[in-house]
Amino acid sequence: MDFPFELLINAVVAGLLLGAFYAAVTAGISISFGMLDIVNIGHPAFIILGSYIAYYFNINYHIDPIVTCLILSPIFYFLGTAIYQVYYLSFEKRGQQSLRGLAFFFGVLFVTEVLLLLAFGVDYRYVATSYIGPSIHVGFVDLPLRMLVPCIGSLILFGGLQLFISHTFTGRAVLAVSQDQLALQLMAVDPIRIKRIAFGVSIAVAAMAGAFLIIIQPVEPSVGREYIGRVFAICVLGGMGSMPGTLIAALLLGVIESITATFYGPSWAPAVSFGVLLLTLAFRPSGILGR
């Protein structure tokens, strides 16, 4: 029974590496959906957009995808604030976010996907960096660098976000917006401005996640759809807007998916997140660390 045990350990380690990356992917959704109550189902589209921009600069100018997306994230931030402004004026202000707001983000997801399809085609695209091939071996455990680098990057990003939310004035105001918008207004803070900033941050994080994504796996325009179920499953399981909860849920889902893929075959992996999502909604809708 030696062999399956090693396989299991390797699957768990791979799952943890993947899970840390999932945490970075979900962080944006935890802010927009968990805290701001904006059901941004278009979020994965921005991740894929980030991936493609990283790909473009990597192929043409040999720039590292992570560097590209760090430089790009302010642009994504402003894109996010602009989208929130449109969303606020057209839907939130009129009280129509539930039906038309959702349709709006769905349209954004869809249009981005088709535009990428028209620009880059349906082929899988990947980047070339020094850390994509090799891996570190610790005993019988393999640590491929293409997973390790995004994992560490994701953890740094995630920690930074947690610090921003818990230790800065703006970050705490974001938390306050999610609890009581009116009270915040009475404290002379403009809730719309805070929400705009937070939404911008969530999209900027999506760009970074995009860079990690294209390091981990080749990307084609419709990959984002696979991530919709996944990110929302993690967000709900983690307890809607709780950052530590999101991290735990992401690691958990990563491990479950990795074990499923190892022992039952990778074609079953997409079903895992949905199963988790449905079970969570049915039995514990407030998530692991729900308020």
């Binding site: 059901v39 189902i41 919709i228 929302f232 999502l277 449905l278």
Partner: peptide
């Protein structure tokens, strides 16, 4: 969200 994941 559940319906979206249902198709996947």
């Amino acid at each position: 969200i559940a319906t979206l994941a249902l198709s996947v």
